[in-house]
Design a binder for these strands. Sequence first.
RNA 1: GGGUCGUUAGCUCAACUAGGCAGAGCAGCGGACUCUUAAUCCGUUGGUUGUGGGUUCGAUUCCCUCACGGCCUACCA
Length: 491
Amino acid sequence: MTDEHELIRIRKEKLKKIKEQGIDPYALHFRRTHSSESVHECAKKISIGEVLEDLEVAVIGRIITVREHGKSCFAHIRDDSGDIQIYIKANAIGEKTYGLFKLLDIGDFIGVKGKIFKTRTGEDTILVSEFSIFSKSLQPLPEKRLGLRDIELKYRRRYVDLIANKDIKPLFKLRSHIISSMRRFLEGKGFLEVETPMMQQIPGGAMAKPFVTHHNTLDMDLYLRIAPELFLKRLIVGGFEKIYEINRNFRNEGISTRHNPEFTMLELYQAFVDYEDLMHLTEEMFCVIAEECLGKTSIEYQGNKIELKKKWKRLSFVDAIKKYAKIDLESVSDKELKNSAKELVPEIRKMNSFREIVDAIFKKVVVPNLVEPTFIVDYPERMCPLAKKKKDNKNLTERFQPYICGIELGNAYSELNDPMEQKERFLDQIKDRKMGDSEAHLMDEDFITALEYGMPPTAGLGIGIDRLVMLFTNSPSIRDVILFPQLKPLI
RNA sequence: GGGUCGUUAGCUCAACUAGGCAGAGCAGCGGACUCUUAAUCCGUUGGUUGUGGGUUCGAUUCCCUCACGGCCUACCA
């Protein structure tokens, strides 16, 4: 108790004095009639110096600024809709009540009742006739002008970040709008939202290391899903034709400005279409979301101005490697490829499988150039064990990934629906795994069984929601768009 | 995991280059002020300088350890 900070001790003393007056400082004392925003709406009827008679409003908010002025005081209170100024005068509410008001601090929640007027500078203000304490704040808030700058504290105490930094709440509101807009778009297209297991016995549908957990009663290890893909395809087998899931994936990999261990994905599957159709769907979805959430179809990301409403570029994976890395994947030998990789990506450690080497070259040499909206299409078969091969070139698959401003935003295929071929591809993956590729797929016998019942030709698309939000909010780090990013504990 | 930069009052930052009593603004506290809004004016409290060690007469400052974080990089999406 003795090491309690002075600022907190003083606030606790004020709290005690409030309680001694028989007041419960954490109770709901009355219902509000107006939000800050609606007070401003009402105030449009009056002009400077005028009082809006015949209307008493009750507003509740957090005190964010205080300007004492003799035996009167101006303050701003904030609710979810915005800020409103209040004006308290000792001779209007009585000396005793004014004394109670002086026990309040910045950060406290109060409710006020009173009439609306406009000050001589024209600011909408509530002339307080009565107030109540709704919650006493014991922690001092950050600096009022500069806010909370400390990045670590912003992430650890996001609630303070939201209070102290004005642009944080709008950003996360926009994130919500983007997701609801996406849902509306997909519902409008006839897609049905479904939920599939987060805990899986065989983690599949992507190349990544999983988190392991344990079910005590079944005495069995389970994996947090790295992707919902194989379950969503089972539902297509079951007869659903248009489904999607927006939910968390978990990947036990490094953390960076583009990676958080848990992240939010859209995955959708549509029967009887191919990846070409999903490219059109992607273009349309991005434009509709941008229009609904930003009011325009152009975005600016880290200095790049991007127009979304146009036909996005298509560039084949092989051509992209040819163009930026000067390697012809169709003729290069494994040895030549390894030598090129050493030159282009000297920091690469893993040189085991074809997939890893080509992937490394692609990410290092090609991706930074993909600023304009671009679909990279037709990836080599060995990189995509769940994708259908192209009709005219069996070395390539019908796959695309959308890129904007060097950000990989998703992944899509015409899904492989031949059970026997899928089994062969899984067996190839197991070979890669034995060569040291720890992210190669595992055999999922039940998924093969599902395909054996017959999956219609289907295309699937995944979109990384966090990265989409980064792009739409001009955020340089994924942690800026995740409310509670993963951090190490302090002790 | 590797590299690099950072950690000073509740918050935002100085002081470190070249070792010599750790400062300011905001917030807080006391006072003046009944149309202020970065309110103003007067006064004032608040520090184990992230942790542990080393060098030194003396360390916020130089060296090392560890912790946490940012950025780059690797893995990955």
